[in-house]
């Protein structure tokens, strides 16, 4: 086994009486791309959000890159600098230009000077195909453009791992391709990625491993071929039947 990037042991999360995650064990190796699938309400997003403590675990251990995220004494801001996150609804900072969105964290956190950050931002925007939007305000962008800016913003902190929370679910169908292309490039370049998605095509093509979740538990995991062509668990089968035969 390669060096572990993510090491989750016996993770439980309750929202009031609602037991959302029930004793999850979840590991991700360096440079690995893991795709989380499963019906809505299965706990995929909650698991992802526990990885950078946007949700505080009820019990269990979450270790990212050797840092115990679930320990209150850990400097969570420091740890988050290395964990990029992309949201379903983009969450671009509405009061800042595209360029400022990308530059905010590196400059505020003293990672780079204004000039360095601006240069880096322009370069990142170029890689996501939006160099001409540097001075634009978020409201003037399409959904696909916003999501690519959001990816650039997360990458600006040079994270070791990227978390994607249904990054294409809020997009018009014709925009999905652009965003997935950027993600594929990232994967190709060796980024460690955890992706919650309903894009089965992306899972098949890019994932090193697919994890199927239902009812707050990991039901089945394996290579894309194993999961999609030869699922063992009944829940996996019925889920895939529904999604793929739409």
């Amino acid at each position: 086994m390669k060096h572990l990037k993510v090491d989750v042991t016996d993770l439980n999360k309750n929202f009031g009486d609602n037991h959302v995650l029930k004793g999850i064990d979840f590991k991700v190796a360096n440079n690995e791309v893991v795709v989380l699938i499963g019906p809505s309400g299965s706990g995929k997003s909650t698991l992802l959000r526990c990885l950078n403590r946007l949700e505080v675990p009820t019990s269990g251990k979450v270790v990212i890159d050797g840092n115990d995220i679930s320990d209150k004494k850990t400097d969570i801001d420091k740890a988050r600098e290395n964990i990029g996150m992309v949201f379903q609804h983009f969450n671009l900072f509405n009061n800042l230009t595209v360029g400022e969105n990308v530059e905010l964290a590196p400059t505020e956190l003293g990672k780079s000077s204004k000039e360095e950050a601006a240069q880096a931002a322009k370069k990142l925007l170029k890689t996501v195909g939006l160099e001409d939007k540097y001075n634009a305000m978020p409201y003037s962008l399409s959904g696909g453009q916003k999501q690519r800016v959001a990816i650039a913003r997360a990458l600006a902190m040079n994270p070791d791992i990227m978390l994607f929370d249904e990054p294409t679910s809020a997009l018009d169908p014709e925009m999905v391709g652009d965003v997935l292309a950027v993600m594929k490039d990232l994967a190709k370049n060796g980024m460690t990625m955890v992706v919650v998605t309903h894009e089965m095509g992306f899972a098949k093509e890019v994932a090193d491993r697919v994890v199927f979740m239902a009812d707050g538990k990991v039901m089945e995991e394996g290579s894309p071929d194993a999961i999609f062509d030869n699922p063992q668990n009944e829940r996996t089968k019925s889920f895939l039947d529904k999604v793929i035969n739409v």
């Binding site: 946007l54 988050r80 964990i83 996150m85 949201f87 969450n91 959001a150 997360a154 902190m157």
Partner: peptide, 13 residues
């Protein structure tokens, strides 16, 4: 929108 705070915090701010 709460997403604004989440996005900012997830960057390490």
């Amino acid at each position: 929108d709460t997403g604004q705070m989440e996005a900012a915090r997830s960057l390490g701010l």
